[in-house]
Nucleic acid binder design. Structure first.
Lengths: 194, 194, 194, 194
DNA sequence: CATGAATGAGCCTTCATTCAT
DNA sequence: CATGAATGAAGGCTCATTCAT
């Protein structure tokens, strides 16, 4: 990569970082393109050299967010075989990602797809893509016959994402929260060992 | 109440209903005062006869929303003594309220307090007020010693509120969801009977 | 009409007048909505209370322009029976209208339909409507058999509209120009009297 | 001319061709410098290596347009002596040029001088230069004493230029149109042979 | 009580132009 | 010669809010 291309990438990334940060913190509508430009140390019009519309910017942030959280999850899962331990690893990676100061994945939770009606469909697809990855892990869990696997997934995701509202650094860490979360469900739902 | 005052109230309520509906469905920023006026069958300026600002409208909706959900919970809890059954009743009332087409309480979940920075503090207080009511019910649960009561509450609320994103009328109802939700946690956390 | 409605109409007309004046003089793209607002003694946003878009404004001006020039032509033609005299009357009315300081009809000639791609079709329809009215008059002319009626109409309209580029008040008036114009074509094209 | 200078000329010509094409088709304001750059297979900034401003580009196109149409007219007129036949040859050359897909001369008709206020004077001069050449031909016509030579010229030019609006390839060609046009005026205006 | 025209700050976006490389 | 990232003024449009009636 040439020095020029390097710098170019840096600027795009700077814009993207700034956008992610603002979207995650204040919301999509609440963020102005001027906010983003200022945070990226650019002038208002300059953003549009790199992104055609504000919607496109959100889409790019979403894509990067999904890439990051899927990567994190994939890595976490890679060398774990036991289903419940796998779920815990996933939740730990999930929480670490959506609670990290790096904003991309936080946007996935904070900004609802219909904040940008024109691209709502694409945003939903991105969310779904990730959700399916998590579902695959849930699907491997050995559950008591009467358990509703679908509800389990929805409850767990709801509980996990809600941390974004209340979590502050303190005694609990993403890791301990993930452990507790999985433990609570596992206790009632795990199939009896044969 | 005089007939005139009655009519006045009707207009205020019409505005409030319209605002709640739109806030719950599209979000605060995404809703224009014109949207609300049109839905209340008024002209744009007329809203300001009843409410000084758009923020005030949101505050009023929040207040009404808290009132309603607290009422629902209070009623649900009133003649149940057993702690876990009480929690289930609370969750049932909670879900029925935030999933009901009547929009007030839905706004509590959908619209984050910092959508309106100037009144964010007041909005948070209102949310907290309700959250404390639920906490009181959680506090009565007999839990195993190692269980984290605080996390339990946050997980449950997260899981419950998340229904707003995925719930569609179908085989599950707020009642069955509440039952499942409480059952899952109870199984792992309930203290052994003496 | 109430006094209020009267004032309202006045404001709409003021906007329309200002828009017509600017469109006719500087062109559509070259005119800013701020120009129009200033000329109508309003603030930039105020125009949008009356017209949804700048395109709509152009459409309204076009409509009024067609209405005026068609009225003028209709009146001119009404009590004349002789075909060539009728054509002269039409051309006189046409020239008086497109050269008058009142700008509406001038816009029809000056602003091409594809200045506003989204409404180009509607603008063309409006032009065509008028063009057909003129064609009806041309169709009544008794011409030598070898004459091309269609070309005649196109030449006459071209010559007439071009006055907008060169005409300045002076010895010639719309009336004398119309007379000359028709005379030039009539001499070569009129069918021999039986 | 060196090979380098040759290539340089090629680039200038490419820009000019692209500009002419776009100005003629969409208008001056409606064309962006990016449109032109793209059509010339360059990057946005590169145009400015060859032309200082967008206005300069228009000026250059105008100049080339005048050069071409004057050349065409000069050639057409060169070996014809009879005045009316000369006029027909001029009109044929004129129409062929302003209707040809090669865009330079089309711009002269399509883009009004005050599209670019700063150079409007120069653009008008260029137009006038050509107009005078045509006037010289009209001046040679033997006309009846009462005919207005000036109006004749203006009518003819108006009718001819208007073809740009309505002409589509079909039964008529520039040549047949020119013939008809001159015939129509000649019939009424030609002085009686002595 | 309500109106509805008007406001004006501010938003997203465009685009001719610049300039370091 | 050409690049391409960046500029910054300006444009069309939105919308919470005001106010005379």
């Amino acid at each position: 990569m040439t020095a020029v291309a390097q710098r170019a990438n840096n600027r795009v990334e700077a814009v993207l970082d700034a956008a992610a940060e603002h979207f995650a913190t204040k919301g999509f509508k609440e963020t102005t393109t001027r906010d983003i430009a200022a945070a990226a140390d650019m002038l208002p019009g300059s953003i549009y050299y790199h992104f055609a519309t504000k919607d496109d910017l959100l889409l790019a942030v979403y894509e990067e967010g999904v890439r990051r959280i899927e990567d994190a999850v994939e890595t976490a899962v890679s060398d774990i075989e036991a289903p419940w331990e796998q779920l815990e690893a996933v939740m730990r990676a999930h929480l670490e990602t959506i609670l990290s100061p790096t904003a991309y994945a936080r946007v996935l939770i904070r900004v609802l797809p219909d904040s940008a009606p024109k691209i709502a469909g694409q945003l939903k697809s991105l969310r779904d893509s990730y959700e399916r990855r998590v579902a695959a892990v849930v699907d491997r869990l050995p559950l008591r016959p009467e358990a509703d696997r679908n509800l389990l997934r929805l409850f767990i995701m709801g509980a996990a994402n809600h941390t974004q509202v209340w979590y502050r650094p303190g005694p609990h860490t993403p890791a301990t929260i993930a452990a507790e979360l999985v433990r609570m469900f596992r206790g009632s739902l795990e199939a009896e060992a044969a």
